[in-house]
């Protein structure tokens, strides 16, 4: 990559960042009355849309930039696919790659062939430029990519670039919540497998600490038990948290493991996660367990008490118990 190219990219990024604030209107700023624009409807083309987007990056209006991105995505199903693919393949500017990649993925998600989405997956894993790989990865966020790209995510979390690895983690987390509502076994298993495959402990911890494991397989649960015994405290804390949400057949074992681990563990972060997971696995029935652990670590006595108070409300949903715990802690 040349210095000129890097400079151009930095300038482009600076321009787009500095123009985020909404602004009333250019005309008002200059005070020049302008004639009304003609606003004629036209057929969209790949090149025309790309030109608009390139120029639109300079716009002070976030609404306009959002519109152009959506327009390209919405157009993907009716634009000539060959032109769209060709534009994607020759584009090297990461921001533009991301727009085109999002459009190709959108085409698949509208019910069309998986080939266009797979093209994005290929670029995400194989492009020479890490910024392009990161951009293509971002474009796969909240799409059906996990279902059409095999072991892509287990590879992305091992990418040489930390940015790509973290973008992949974000995809897995957001897909888990926003595409699958946390109750889709294969998506959660993909996330656990990727977390286990990564050698970047920050990525592993981030994934495990932020996904729902409500529908994971027995094998994924086993992975969590393995990760619980790792060297990195952040990973152990996240694995402990993930074990709190496992399906019914795994709950009893998870509880036993976590109680035993609490006594052996010395890291306060891991212990905090264990307390949360014990509360989640048992609700009111966890109160005696929590009382039994109360004096193991004096630093966590207030945390144990907070969980006991929250569970004593008798609320029957985890999200409400979490809310209640926070309310009670803030009220004190």
């Amino acid at each position: 990559m040349t210095r000129t190219f890097l400079l151009a990219r930095a300038l482009c990024l600076l321009t787009s960042l500095s123009l985020l604030a909404p602004s009333p209107s250019f005309a008002e700023a200059t005070g020049t009355p302008l004639p009304p624009p003609s606003l004629q409807p036209e057929t969209c083309s790949v090149e025309g849309l790309m030109d608009s987007i390139r120029r639109g990056l300079q716009s002070k209006s976030p609404a306009y930039r959002r519109y152009l991105r959506e327009l390209l995505k919405e157009s993907a199903v009716t634009l000539p696919e060959e032109q769209l693919r060709a534009a994607f393949e020759r584009e090297t500017e990461p921001l533009m790659v991301e727009h085109l990649a999002a459009a190709l993925a959108a085409k698949t998600d509208r019910g069309e062939s998986v080939a266009t989405l797979q093209l994005v997956g290929k670029r995400a894993s194989q492009d020479a430029d890490p910024a392009v790989r990161a951009a293509a990865t971002r474009a796969l966020r909240r799409t059906s990519a996990e279902e059409h790209t095999g072991d892509l995510y287990s590879r992305l979390v091992r990418d040489a670039s930390p940015e790509v690895r973290m973008e992949a983690a974000t995809n897995l987390i957001e897909d888990n919540q926003f595409v699958y509502a946390g109750f889709h076994g294969p998506a959660s298993d993909t996330a656990v497998a990727a977390a286990a495959a990564s050698s970047d402990s920050k990525v592993t911890a981030r994934i495990l600490g932020n996904i729902s494991t409500a529908a994971i397989s027995k094998e994924s649960a086993e992975q969590l038990h393995t990760l619980l015994r790792g060297d990195d405290a952040e990973v152990r804390a996240a694995a402990a948290k993930a074990l709190g949400g496992v399906p019914a057949p795994e709950m009893s074992r998870a509880r036993q493991t976590l109680v035993a681990l609490y006594r052996d563990e010395s890291d306060v972060g891991v212990r905090t996660s264990i307390l949360q997971s014990l509360a989640r696995l048992g609700f009111a029935s966890a109160v005696p367990e929590l009382r039994g652990l109360r004096n193991v670590d004096p630093r966590l006595v207030p945390e144990v008490d907070a969980w006991i108070r929250a569970l004593s409300t008798g609320l029957q949903e985890w999200s409400l118990i979490l809310r209640e715990k926070q309310r009670l802690q803030q009220a004190r």
Binding site: S25, E28, L39, E42, G48, S52, S59
Partner: peptide
């Protein structure tokens, strides 16, 4: 088919309340 609007960029930059 989506619609692309000729001059929308000018609309966007020039429009006021």
């Amino acid at each position: 088919a989506t619609t692309c609007w000729k001059d929308l960029e000018r609309f966007n930059e020039g429009v006021s309340l």
